[in-house]
Structure formats: structure tokens, C-alpha cells
Amino acid sequence: MSTPSPKGQLTRDEVAHLAHLSRLAVSDEELDLFAGQLAAVLDAVAQVGKADVADVPPTTHAVPMTNVMRADVARPSLPRDVVLAGAPAAEDDRFRVPRILGEEA
């Protein structure tokens, strides 16, 4: 997505890029379907742009609160067999994943 396209427009290529960014291996048929549906949705949601929000602060929480913190006290962790019980694959007490491509760690 090199340059933002006008609001309300969502091309098939952009949907493909967004799908990749969200790790969704969408099929070609889905791309066509989503591009159409999302363009319509985007058209509808773009109405937020109509609001006059100059000097309006964003709301992130319904009831404003600050400085919610907990004391620094260590508590027991889960037993390891429980931790690994749900793992799709495990090896040597760790979660096993396929080879990682990308940046060298």
C-alpha cells in the first residue's frame, strides 16, 4: 500500500495486501467477494468523516480512569504440562513451530 487510495475505495490488491498483513491466506474467490463487500462497508463507515470533531478528544474508555496498577508480587505460574497441553506441537518442553523465515534473530 504505497499511497493511500481515496476513502471508500478498496481495491482487490489492497485487500490482498491487508490479508497478507493479517496472515490470512485468502483464496481468489474470497478476494473478489471481500473486495466488493468491504468497499460497501467502507463506504458506510466513511461517514464518520462527516462529523465535525475539531477540538474533540478521542474517547478510549467509557468511564475514565488512570493509574490502575498492581503491586510487584510474584505469584505461582501454571504447571508446565498444563502450559503445553494445548500446544499443536511441543518438543523439549517448548512450543514447536515450523521454520521461521524472515529476519535473522
Binding site: 490479508a19 498483513l21 496472515r23 490470512l24 491466506a25 471481500f34 462497508v41 463507515v45 513451530v97
Partner: peptide, 26 residues
């Protein structure tokens, strides 16, 4: 791993969830 993640999420999520993830990512 990237391919496995993308396939997992493609098959694990239904269409509405995928639509909203893409919309939200955008």
C-alpha cells in the same frame, strides 16, 4: 511458519471474522 499461520487463520476463521480483521487492519 508464516505460511502455516496464514493457512491456519484462513481455515480457522469464518468469512465475517476475516472481513472484520481485514477492515480493522485497514
Amino acid at each position: 511458519l508464516d505460511e502455516v499461520m496464514a493457512l491456519t487463520r484462513e481455515q480457522g476463521f469464518g468469512p465475517e471474522v476475516k472481513r472484520r480483521i481485514i477492515l480493522g487492519t485497514y
